[in-house]
Amino acid sequence: MIEELKENAELRSRLYWLLSRLYLERPTYQFLLSLKEKLNEIEDSSEGVELIRESLKGELQELSERLGVEFTRLFRGIKEGYGPPPPYESVYMGEGRVMGETTLVVLRFYTESGLGLMEDIEDPQDYIGAELRFMSLLIYRELEGWETGKKREAFNTMKREKEFLEKHMLRWVPKFCELVEGESGEDFYRGVAVLTKEFLTSDYDYLSEVISELSAL
């Protein structure tokens, strides 16, 4: 069972990492190429993957340039009304809230989880890419726990993961993804949005199941 948890953790950490990259960097030709190759190996498909696969059919160099523009428009908050409001948790949660300390709360969560300020990320730390990356790193921490036999810690880390999804990501990321789905003219990013949304939900379901199972033991 530990083996399975370990495998899952590695898989999940990698997937969060991949997703975070999609929001932190604009896709290079090289990246699109490897993505395309990978997708060619797979038969089974979901809506998000299908959208991405579809988008990769054309000329990749040109697509990479086009996606660069779309990336900037969708995620970078160039100006009001140009693309959706930029994907920072504070933007999506701040409205109508009494105090705007979202970013700070997120940072505290990172710190309390044994991590903290991610120096590689230049954006404010409540950027969608930053939160996804945090999840990746946190799950990596969990993985380390399983690997070194610190089961209690690994389990607690899992609970943190669930809590972060619950208190933060699931509260706003799906909303943002829906905006992207509705607004983007690029299948690629619509696919990314669908994937992100679905992955977060199924990961949350997975965590809930595993945690209740483990607690019962």
Partner: peptide, 25 residues
Amino acid sequence: GLGAFSALASLGGLSEIARASKRVK
């Protein structure tokens, strides 16, 4: 729930993740 997405996991490099997990304060 993940569908084909899980097959893409190898695009997320574990060594990168390991490195990044050291660069937090």
